[in-house]
Write a protein that binds this DNA or RNA. Structure first.
Lengths: 135, 135
DNA sequence: CAGCATCCTATGCGATACTG
DNA sequence: CAGTATCGCATAGGATGCTG
């Protein structure tokens, strides 16, 4: 086995790094989506309960409706959330998390919790690093 | 309490969404870094054992040395990895994961494992979604 | 209400060349 | 070997206006 081209990941899965393009490597293919600027926030909200488009917009005030639409579409495309249209007048659209989404959010929520618990340590590391960069 | 501006996240932490800029929201501040194209890959490698710059370069053949340098610097800045210079000739630099990095990688590795386990389901969801977009 | 279309800017990232 | 410096592109994302 060519050690320079193939490595065993901690997840226990061999991953051919000479072909680690986004479509071929599960890690990169999946992470690329949830790595978006707003994806984790939307997932965190929809993990609690379904929300309508306008509710999400109000809950995340600094998102443009362009990005909200696009993020929801991408998450729906990957199977994490469902989109249900109520043909009322005016129409209303409700987004909810799928089973696949919940199963992703289970480990993901641990990372988000880690971020909350260790944000101070990370910020402290940055200050220290930036200080040592001077002089 | 203004429900439109404040919500309780699943992590159990109130997060003022009217001020959810990257520097203020732990989730966004931490995720923004590990969301980079190469961060999770480098973390996955360094979680196993320390590596030198050139080794990482060979293990991830399609990364430019510019991005490898920048990714390593960013991860070091956030306190996830250490950089030790051996003043040999030619010099050699070894990167290793810190305790903070390992504590982050513990939950993160679960997400990466999820990606490996559910990559097929995600790809299937995409095919289904794209098909329903036509006609 | 829940979008889509258009335009524009910021920047992540790659390619190439040079250095202690 | 392990970087830095410069250039250039592709795309993520924001602002604004229009629609069923």
């Amino acid at each position: 086995m060519d050690n320079a081209a193939r490595v065993t990941t901690l997840a226990g899965e061999p991953c051919d790094m000479s072909n680690w393009d986004a479509g071929n490597c599960p890690v990169r293919d999946v992470m690329n989506q949830i790595a978006g600027k707003w994806s984790t926030l939307i997932l965190e909200l929809l993990a609690q309960r379904p929300y309508r488009f306008g509710e999400l917009r109000r809950l995340v005030p600094d998102i443009s409706q362009r990005m909200l639409t696009q993020t929801l579409r991408d998450l729906q495309r990957d199977g994490y959330i469902d989109r249900q249209v109520f043909p009322t007048k005016p129409p209303s659209v409700e987004y909810s998390m799928t089973e696949l989404g919940h199963s992703l959010f289970e480990p993901l929520s641990k990372v988000l919790a880690w971020a909350g618990d260790n944000h101070a340590a990370v910020k402290a590391a940055r200050v220290k690093f930036d200080a040592s960069e001077l002089g």
